[in-house]
Simulated scan of single mutants.
Amino acid sequence: MRNSDGPLWVEYLTAMLNDADLYTFARVGATVNNSLVFRPQPDFSGQVYRYTLTEDTTEPKYDKLYFIWLGGNDIAELYNNKKYPNNNVERDRILNDTQFTIRYNLEKLYETGARYIICLGVNPTHLYPANNDKTEEFRQSYKESIMKFNERLQTNIEDLNSRHNDSKAVFFETYKLFYSFFPEQTIMENSKWHCNYSAICNG
């Protein structure tokens, strides 16, 4: 299932890698663990489980690269779905618990032979246009949750490498990279309006 007006970032990447084969088990809108933050899509655990059932798990992994991008939907749901507690202590507890799920599934991937894993951090989604009508306090709290999630995810990756000498997992800092790509004025302008499927968006 796609949620894009054009090629996805990973499709651009595969083209840059001499049209490398691309296998995706991701589901748009998914969270890390549906028992912690629910959405109707198969969660990260379910996606990893589906992968472990494929023949790919028995093939050599020396030339295979695994990309994992998660956390953004969890944070969005915790801040925008009223069924979740409206306080930072509970949000922090839930997001911390998602890291245990991530750790478990990173180990599952390692057990299948995955060695080259790139986990992308959550980008500055507190500045999405959907949050433009929220208070500054709301956006600041949202931002802090992103930063904490990314820090814990990076620690998870470092822990995986420390447990396994042959693991080459990497945490990719999308949050800071986003700010290095775009001037702050452009970021703030884009936080206030949506492209509405225009051919060319600002920036």
Rank of each mutant, 00 (worst) to 15 (best):
L8A: 09
W9H: 11
W9G: 07
W9S: 01
E11S: 01
E11A: 07
Y12R: 09
Y12D: 13
T14F: 03
M16A: 15
L17H: 12
D19C: 14
F25V: 05
V28H: 01
A30D: 05
V32T: 10
S35D: 15
V37L: 05
R39P: 00
Q41Y: 13
P42K: 01
D43N: 13
F44M: 10
G46A: 11
G46P: 01
G46R: 05
V48K: 00
Y49T: 15
Y51L: 08
E55H: 06
E55V: 10
E55S: 14
T58R: 10
E59K: 13
K61C: 03
D63T: 09
I68L: 06
I68P: 00
L70V: 15
G71M: 04
G71E: 02
G72V: 08
N73W: 00
D74G: 02
I75A: 01
L78P: 03
K82A: 14
K82R: 15
K83V: 14
K83L: 08
P85H: 07
N88C: 05
N88P: 00
E90M: 09
R91I: 10
D92A: 06
D92N: 09
R93H: 06
I94A: 00
D97F: 03
D97H: 02
D97W: 03
T98N: 05
T101H: 02
Y104S: 10
N105W: 11
N105E: 13
L109E: 01
L109I: 04
L109A: 07
L109H: 02
Y110C: 05
Y110A: 11
T112W: 08
T112C: 12
T112S: 06
T112Y: 09
A114F: 09
R115K: 10
R115E: 12
Y116R: 04
G121A: 13
V122P: 01
V122C: 04
V122G: 00
N123V: 14
N123T: 14
P124T: 11
T125W: 04
H126C: 11
Y128P: 01
P129R: 01
P129A: 12
N132F: 15
K134L: 05
K134H: 12
K134P: 00
E137V: 14
F138L: 10
R139I: 12
R139C: 11
Q140G: 07
Y142K: 03
K143A: 15
E144N: 11
E151V: 03
R152A: 11
Q154F: 06
N156R: 06
N156L: 08
I157H: 02
E158D: 15
E158P: 05
L160I: 07
N161D: 11
N161G: 11
H164Y: 14
H164L: 00
H164A: 05
N165T: 14
N165Q: 12
D166L: 04
S167K: 04
K168D: 12
V170N: 01
F171E: 13
F171A: 03
E173I: 00
T174P: 01
T174K: 00
S180T: 15
S180W: 10
F181D: 08
F182T: 03
F182I: 07
F182Y: 14
E184R: 08
E184C: 07
T186C: 12
T186N: 15
T186L: 12
M188Y: 15
E189D: 06
N190M: 11
N190K: 03
K192V: 10
K192M: 09
H194P: 02
N196H: 12
S198A: 13
S198W: 11
A199C: 13
N202M: 06
N202C: 05
